[in-house]
Design a protein around this nucleic acid. Structure first.
Length: 290
DNA sequence: GATCGGCCCTGCCCGC
DNA sequence: TGCGGGCAGGGCCGAT
């Protein structure tokens, strides 16, 4: 599924391909894709028409296109299986095409259109108001992500210690830090040698800083490997092809040796999903807190 | 207010 | 071969 590094790759691609272009026609082919646009799909299409993209931005896994001369933005979340594709206008529809966005130059020879494709429909698009900083209102309450220049590790470490919950649960809490999903949480915990149920209020500031630095390091490495050429036409996210998969240390590696100590990686149920850890490097705390 | 559990949705994969 | 069930997951909402 698209994680923060993949969303950043999409952002860069979109910046190259859609900035400065004006929407001419928007077709919603599956209503669930615009369910967060409360006024409905027709309103979404009508209000987007004639707007010009002035920039492409990201916070955590949220992506948005700012619109010239307005205090509104086209907000996108890719969910588990969403893709934003820049495709030749008139090329065959994808099986799971949910929204087609045509520009006023899509009809010229070699012209392209933007498509939102989403198999599992966890993602979606909406047209939303922005605050005085240009931040979409639904994103305003979300914390900065570890790749944000203004993210402060020491502030995070202090906030973490004030929480009374388990460490992984805190890492997945978007109001504390955004952009960390199940995979990167497990990888960061492994690097920091910490258990997912470690009570946050028992952690030292150094441990808090280390776990967030680890999360950032994994993401930066993934981004470096995924930073493909943005001159290519397709602004693609494909979870199944996962360029970073072969480099994961614990996620999805149950029963295989820990890359650090050789103990067999275990998989445990956690929050209706799975957690992977090394039982030797990341021992269970005396008083775990899920 | 903070924390936590359940649900949404669809395709793939495995076991019977 | 066909079918049913489990699994994947971020964000939202309601319960505690």
């Amino acid at each position: 599924m698209p994680e923060l590094p993949e969303v950043e790759v999409v952002r860069r691609g979109l910046e190259h391909w859609v900035t400065g272009r004006r929407f001419a026609a928007v077709e919603v082919t599956h209503p669930r894709a615009t369910r967060r646009h409360v006024a409905g799909a027709d309103d979404f299409s009508r209000r987007l028409r004639g707007r010009t993209v002035s920039g492409v931005h990201r916070r955590g896994k949220y992506l948005w296109l700012s619109l010239e001369g307005t205090d509104e933005a086209l907000l996108a979340h890719l969910g588990m299986s969403g893709q934003l594709l820049v495709q030749p206008a008139g090329s065959p529809d994808e099986v799971h095409l949910r929204v087609r966005l045509r520009f006023d130059d899509s009809d010229i020879p070699g012209g392209t259109e933007l498509r939102f494709v989403d198999q599992r429909t966890f993602g979606g698009l909406s047209l939303v108001s922005t605050d005085e900083h240009g931040l979409p209102l639904p994103v305003a309450h979300i914390a900065r992500d570890p790749l944000d220049e203004q993210f402060e590790d020491t502030t995070f470490a202090s906030a973490l210690r004030r929480r009374r919950t388990g460490l992984k649960r805190a890492l997945l809490d978007q109001s504390l830090v955004s952009g960390i999903g199940n995979i990167y949480a497990d990888e960061a915990l492994w690097r920091a040698r910490l258990h997912y149920a470690r009570p946050t209020d028992s952690m030292t500031r150094a441990q808090g800083s280390e776990v967030i630095a680890s999360a950032r390091a994994v993401m930066v490495e993934a981004l470096a490997r995924g930073g493909t050429s943005f001159d290519s036409l397709y602004v693609d996210v494909n979870g199944s092809s996962g360029y970073f998969e072969r480099d994961l240390a614990v996620y999805g590696r149950a029963g295989r040796p820990c890359l650090r100590c050789g103990a067999l990686v275990v998989r445990e149920p956690f929050m209706n999903r799975s957690s992977f850890r090394c039982p030797r490097c990341q021992p269970r705390p005396r008083r775990p807190r899920a």
